[in-house]
Amino acid sequence: MLEAVVRNGVHILVFASAGGVLYGNVWELAGEEHPAVPVSPYGISKLTGEMYLRF
């Protein structure tokens, strides 16, 4: 999918993710600058997807 995005010149991509699986049990509002601490293999896969998108 990411290769198709690049090949077709897409400039905006919405990537939905779940904060609970990326940031653990956070008792405050966690933004993108909050350190990611995945709590499961699913959370690791979501974080990996985000890292590919940033790359």
Results as ranks from 00 to 15, higher is better:
residue 30 A to F: 03
residue 45 S to I: 02
residue 2 L to W: 08
residue 30 A to Q: 04
residue 4 A to Y: 05
residue 52 Y to G: 00
residue 43 G to E: 03
residue 21 V to E: 12
residue 19 G to D: 05
residue 52 Y to M: 14
residue 28 E to I: 06
residue 38 P to A: 05
residue 42 Y to K: 09
residue 42 Y to H: 10
residue 41 P to Q: 11
residue 4 A to L: 10
residue 43 G to R: 05
residue 18 A to C: 09
residue 41 P to V: 07
residue 31 G to D: 15
residue 51 M to C: 01
residue 34 H to W: 06
residue 34 H to T: 15
residue 43 G to Y: 03
residue 44 I to K: 12
residue 17 S to E: 02
residue 35 P to S: 05
residue 55 F to H: 09
residue 21 V to A: 03
residue 28 E to C: 02
residue 38 P to D: 07
residue 11 H to D: 13
residue 19 G to R: 14
residue 26 V to P: 01
residue 3 E to L: 05
residue 1 M to I: 03
residue 15 F to R: 01
residue 55 F to L: 13
residue 24 G to H: 06
residue 39 V to H: 03
residue 22 L to H: 06
residue 21 V to G: 03
residue 32 E to M: 11
residue 53 L to Q: 01
residue 15 F to H: 13
residue 45 S to P: 00
residue 23 Y to T: 11
residue 54 R to N: 13
residue 34 H to E: 09
residue 42 Y to G: 05
residue 23 Y to G: 06
residue 50 E to V: 09
residue 14 V to F: 12
residue 10 V to M: 07
residue 10 V to P: 00
residue 47 L to W: 09
residue 9 G to Q: 09
residue 15 F to A: 13
residue 10 V to N: 00
residue 43 G to L: 02
residue 27 W to D: 12
residue 27 W to E: 11
residue 51 M to S: 07
residue 13 L to V: 15
residue 46 K to S: 06
residue 20 G to C: 01
residue 53 L to T: 02
residue 26 V to I: 10
residue 20 G to N: 14
residue 7 R to A: 15
residue 25 N to Y: 05
residue 39 V to Q: 12
residue 13 L to E: 06
residue 18 A to S: 14
residue 10 V to S: 05
residue 16 A to I: 07
residue 27 W to V: 00
residue 44 I to P: 00
residue 36 A to F: 06
residue 18 A to P: 00
residue 49 G to T: 12
residue 29 L to V: 12
residue 10 V to W: 07
residue 53 L to D: 00
residue 35 P to G: 02
residue 25 N to K: 12
residue 28 E to T: 11
residue 15 F to Q: 10
residue 50 E to I: 15
residue 30 A to V: 02
residue 16 A to R: 09
residue 28 E to W: 05
residue 6 V to Q: 13
residue 17 S to N: 05
residue 54 R to P: 00
residue 11 H to E: 15
residue 48 T to Y: 13
residue 41 P to H: 10
residue 41 P to T: 09
residue 24 G to V: 01
residue 39 V to R: 10
residue 17 S to V: 14
residue 29 L to C: 01
residue 36 A to L: 02
residue 41 P to K: 10
residue 36 A to D: 01
residue 37 V to Q: 13
residue 16 A to D: 07
residue 7 R to Q: 12
residue 8 N to C: 04
residue 35 P to L: 05
residue 24 G to N: 08
residue 6 V to I: 11
residue 35 P to H: 04
residue 52 Y to H: 10
residue 18 A to M: 08
residue 31 G to P: 01
residue 50 E to M: 14
residue 26 V to C: 14
residue 15 F to T: 02
residue 25 N to A: 13
residue 10 V to Y: 08
residue 6 V to A: 13
residue 23 Y to D: 00
residue 40 S to E: 06
residue 38 P to C: 07
residue 52 Y to W: 09
residue 32 E to H: 08
residue 41 P to R: 10
residue 42 Y to F: 15
residue 24 G to C: 07
residue 51 M to P: 00
residue 35 P to Q: 04
residue 4 A to W: 04
residue 50 E to Q: 14
residue 40 S to T: 15
residue 7 R to S: 10
residue 17 S to K: 00
residue 54 R to V: 04
residue 28 E to M: 02
residue 23 Y to A: 10
residue 47 L to R: 13
residue 45 S to D: 08
residue 4 A to H: 04
residue 1 M to T: 04
residue 2 L to K: 05
residue 32 E to W: 10
residue 42 Y to L: 15
residue 25 N to I: 03
residue 29 L to N: 06
residue 23 Y to K: 03
residue 30 A to Y: 04
residue 5 V to W: 03
residue 38 P to G: 06
residue 7 R to F: 01
residue 4 A to K: 09
residue 38 P to K: 04
residue 18 A to G: 14
residue 3 E to Q: 12
residue 11 H to C: 01
